[in-house]
């Protein structure tokens, strides 16, 4: 049996993952919501576009299907931020870092620009794929 904690003070991924499974069961039971995150990015960008050009957003098929609004999942994603912040601060594992260790090992410690381009492009591509796959 694997240890129930990691050497840096974290929990075993089996334990944390299993408990998150219980969270998902309770969510489906109590609120009737399955866990997800990517629709929130659609709603958020829809809200931003709606601020600039509401007439245009009102005509766009995708925003008619996925209404720009703050809903259960939007608050879920905000909650992820808060929950991770609480866990990181209370265990002193919060670390202000713009270049991940593994990235620095490969691209060096002065690669902020490259990291920004990779992360931005990666994010845009990943979200396009996630929406296409309906994930």
């Amino acid at each position: 049996m694997a240890d129930l904690s990691t050497n840096d003070g974290g929990w075993s991924p089996y334990l944390a993952g299993g408990l998150s499974g219980i969270v998902s069961i309770l969510s489906v039971w109590i609120a009737g919501h399955f866990l997800g995150a990517s629709t929130t990015f659609v709603r958020t960008v829809g809200l931003l576009e709606d601020f600039i050009s509401p007439e245009r957003v009102a005509q766009m098929e995708y925003f008619i299907k996925t209404t720009p609004k703050i809903d259960w999942q939007w608050m879920f994603v905000v909650g992820i931020f808060i929950g991770a912040l609480i866990a990181a601060l209370s265990s002193k594992s919060f670390k202000w870092q713009g270049l991940p260790d593994l990235w620095q090992k490969r691209f060096g410690s002065k690669s902020q620009g490259k990291r920004a381009v990779f992360a931005f492009t990666g994010g845009a591509i990943a979200m396009y794929g996630a929406r296409l796959a309906d994930g």
Binding site: G10, W11, S12, P13, L15, A16, G17, L19, S20, V23, S24, L26, S27, A31, H33, L35, M75, F76, V77, V78, G79, I80, F81, I82, G83, A84, L85, I86, A87, A88, S91, S93
Partner: peptide
């Protein structure tokens, strides 16, 4: 739900 899930993601 998000707070609980985010807490566990960080702990894991």
């Amino acid at each position: 739900t998000g707070i609980a899930f985010g807490f566990l993601l960080q702990k894991g």
